[in-house]
Every structure is written in structure tokens, then in C-alpha cells.
């Protein structure tokens, strides 16, 4: 029993400590993202654009494929229930609303976590182990400005962009199944989708994906800087960055779903 309380206490303390570290890192990033460029210290645009291409464009094929399939799956699953009432045209509503409000942001975030969140942790961790971060500091180059800010900027811009595309592709997946498998009239499906979706649904999805982007890059960066020891440390932190990130994404998703439900 004491063991249990000891464990809870220690975990809480550790989490608080990590939280303080993350806050420190965040303030540093905001400083180098907004304040220092105004003071003429510049921003590493080229690096940010390269990262944007990596996070955004290169993630698009897999995100597109998976969201298309998920759209098809939801269409089929809802057809299973709706057919009994002869209400197959409402598949469009279900697919559209879940794509915008929930599944496109979530699927995109989870895929980008696996693809890029882990890569961020691994890259920073490897640089730390190889003393490259120290080398930056000795040269008088700030690691936050140099490494963190470009990744942060790129992720916060890239994930919402991917998410919007993912929304369309998911709806296309639903459309494809409904029209060619379940025999819903194409025009009806489109009309039904247009009628069902509101601006607020899009907004919900975008707000979520913005926060998911924050989670993904923060967890990746934080875990990367946490790496100690050699290659083994990099592996451990990379794995744990994916687990932590997905966990926090689900939590953030829940919080925003609740908020938007009542708003």
C-alpha cells in the first residue's frame, strides 16, 4: 500500500517537473518565434519550409489513403444500420459529420505522430547523444531557435492543412462506397452532405487539429531533449513519445468534443 502511494507521489512529482520543463521550453519557443525576430534576430525560414514539406506533403499519401479507407468503412458500417429503415441517404450525414468533427483530425494526427512526432524525438535525441546540441551551444547558436522553432512552426501549419484535405478525402471514401456499393444516388449523396455540414463542424475539426499539432511537436521535442545515454535512450524516448502523444491527443480530443457539444 505504501508502495502504491509512493508510486503515485513520485509519478505526480515527476509529471509536475516535466510540466515545468515543457512550460520553460514553450516560453523559450514563443520568445524565439515572436519576440526575437522583431529584435532583428531572424527566423530560420528555410529550415521551417523544409520541415513543412516533410510533415505536410510527404505525409499526405498515407494520410490520404487511410482516411479514404476510413470514410469507406464508416459508410459501410452506417449502411448496416440505416438500411433497415431505408434511410441510406443519411449515410452522407454520418460520414460528413464524423469526418469533419472527429475522424479526419484524429486519423491525421495519429498518423503524423507515428510518422513525424517520433522522427522529431529521434532526431533531437540523436543530436543530443552525438553532442550536436552541445556543439550548437558552444558556437553560440541557440538550440531552441535553431531546431525547435522551425519544427514548431512547420507542424502547427502543416497538420491543419493535411486535416482539411483529409476531411474531403474521407467524404470521398464514403461517397465511393455509398454510390457504387450501396446504390445511393450520387446527386442525393452530395446534396445530403451539403445540407448536413455547417461551418461549426469545420471549425471544430480545425481547432482540434491545431491542438493536436501542439501536442505532437511538444511531446516529440520534449522527449528528444530527455534522451540520456546512447542509442538505447533514443529508442526508449522515441517509443514513449508516440505513446504519450497519442494519449494526449485523445485527451485533447475529448476535452474539445465536450466543449463543442455544449457550445
Amino acid at each position: 500500500m505504501t508502495l502504491f502511494f509512493g508510486y503515485v507521489g513520485r509519478t505526480t512529482l515527476n509529471s509536475l517537473f516535466s510540466f515545468a520543463l515543457v512550460c520553460q521550453l514553450m516560453l523559450d519557443t514563443l520568445n524565439w518565434l515572436f519576440l526575437q525576430p522583431l529584435l532583428g534576430k531572424g527566423l530560420r525560414w528555410r529550415s521551417a519550409i523544409e520541415q513543412f514539406v516533410e510533415f505536410g506533403a510527404r505525409s499526405m499519401p498515407i494520410v490520404g489513403l487511410i482516411t479514404f479507407l476510413v470514410g469507406a468503412i464508416i459508410a459501410l458500417q452506417s449502411a448496416y444500420t440505416l438500411e433497415q429503415w431505408g434511410a441510406t441517404r443519411f449515410i452522407a450525414d454520418l460520414v460528413g459529420i464524423s469526418a469533419l468533427r472527429e475522424l479526419a483530425p484524429l486519423m491525421a494526427a495519429i498518423l503524423v505522430t507515428g510518422r513525424n512526432g517520433s522522427a522529431i524525438a529521434a532526431e533531437i535525441g540523436t543530436m543530443k547523444v552525438a553532442e550536436e546540441i552541445d556543439a550548437l551551444e558552444v558556437m553560440g547558436l541557440n538550440p531552441v531557435k535553431f531546431l525547435v522553432v522551425p519544427k514548431f512552426l512547420a507542424m502547427v501549419l502543416a497538420l491543419p492543412c493535411i486535416t482539411v484535405l483529409a476531411m474531403f478525402i474521407m467524404i470521398a471514401g464514403g461517397f465511393f462506397v455509398s454510390v457504387f456499393v450501396i446504390d445511393v444516388d450520387a446527386a442525393v449523396y452530395i446534396e445530403q452532405t451539403m445540407g448536413a455540414l455547417k461551418g461549426k463542424d469545420l471549425l471544430t475539426g480545425m481547432v482540434k487539429s491545431f491542438f493536436f499539432a501542439l501536442v505532437i511537436c511538444w511531446v516529440g521535442i520534449y522527449r528528444g531533449f530527455q534522451v540520456e545515454g546512447g542509442a538505447e535512450g533514443v529508442g526508449r524516448q522515441t517509443t514513449s513519445s508516440v505513446v504519450t502523444s497519442i494519449f494526449l491527443i485523445i485527451i485533447a480530443d475529448l476535452v474539445w468534443t465536450i466543449l463543442f457539444y455544449f457550445l
Binding site: 540523436t126 543530436m127 552525438a130 553532442e131 550536436e132 552541445d134 556543439a135 558552444v138 558556437m139 553560440g140 547558436l141
Partner: peptide, 27 residues
């Protein structure tokens, strides 16, 4: 100051030339 690290600590994502040029470009 300059420092030579035990494992050289070159930036692996950049060419050797860019590694050397980096402090000049930044400072």
C-alpha cells in the same frame, strides 16, 4: 572559443562545408 568534441559532433544532416560555414553564416 572553439571546441572539438570527442565524437566530432558534426551536424549529420549538413555537408562538411555547411558545417564549417554555419558559424560564419549565423554570426
Amino acid at each position: 572559443m572553439g571546441m572539438c568534441f570527442q565524437g566530432s559532433a558534426l551536424f549529420n544532416s549538413m555537408t562538411v562545408g555547411d558545417n564549417v560555414a554555419l558559424p560564419l553564416r549565423e554570426h
